[in-house]
């Protein structure tokens, strides 16, 4: 086994194990951390494919930003794990059977028979002067400008949707208006009532 293969198998095993951890971990926070590990292993495999830019973006954007945000959300939510797991045992056999069926099918199809070196020649390795970033940039704003712009529209819709669904003006919330507070005069708040003084005798009657 070459060094290349050792790295590949090490990281792909790590990725599969971590992905299993995401779905099987009891604690949602652990799930998120496993997902970070999955992304990390994925980016290592992308490095082997000479997709350096994508690998670094995956770590920076997904691991660095998205997953940290995700972690915050998971920690903020009050998730009732026991209630979530109620139906689990009932559906588990069915789910596992379907999963095994799918895996067997995938192994049969996406195996070396159809995607091996006989079917596809190994891609050429690029030299040291090859820049993955430059190659991506060259097609992203020319050949794929339409897809790129559409992706930006999707992000815009995501923002609009998120704000629509979460921003609410509650009419009954109590909050301070500092300007109004400062303007208050003594006569607005204080009412001096002129009343007769009461004596103890009157109370006894």
């Amino acid at each position: 086994m070459t060094f290349f293969e050792v790295v590949f198998y090490a990281f792909s095993t790590l990725m599969v194990v971590a992905a299993l951890g995401v779905v099987s971990a009891r604690n949602p926070v652990h799930s998120v951390l496993f997902l970070v590990l999955t992304f990390f292993a994925g980016s290592a495999i992308w490095l082997l494919l000479e997709a350096e830019f994508l690998a670094i973006t995956l770590v920076l954007v997904y691991v660095g930003a998205v997953m940290v945000l995700f972690l915050f959300v998971v920690m903020m939510l009050d998730i009732n794990i026991t209630r979530m797991r109620e139906g689990l045992m009932r559906y588990a056999p069915f789910g596992i059977a379907i999963a095994i069926l799918l895996i067997v099918q995938m192994i049969m199809v996406v195996g070396p028979e159809n995607f091996g070196l006989q079917a596809f020649a190994a891609p050429e390795l690029h030299g040291a002067d090859y820049s993955n970033t430059k190659e991506l940039g060259r097609v992203l704003y020319t050949d794929y400008v339409y897809a790129f712009e559409l992706a930006s529209v999707i992000l815009l819709v995501a923002i609009v949707a998120a704000i629509t669904l979460t921003m609410r003006r509650r009419p009954n919330t109590r909050h301070q208006i500092p300007g109004e507070q400062m303007k208050v005069m003594k006569q607005d708040r204080l009412r001096i009532v002129n009343m007769k003084s009461e004596t103890i005798d009157s109370e006894d009657k």
Partner: peptide, 19 residues
């Protein structure tokens, strides 16, 4: 005329519909 534009159009539509 491309799988990519088909998928992006579909996601744009679906995301709007979910909201």
């Amino acid at each position: 005329n491309h799988f990519l534009s088909m998928y992006l159009g579909l996601e744009l539509l679906s995301l709007s519909l979910y909201a």
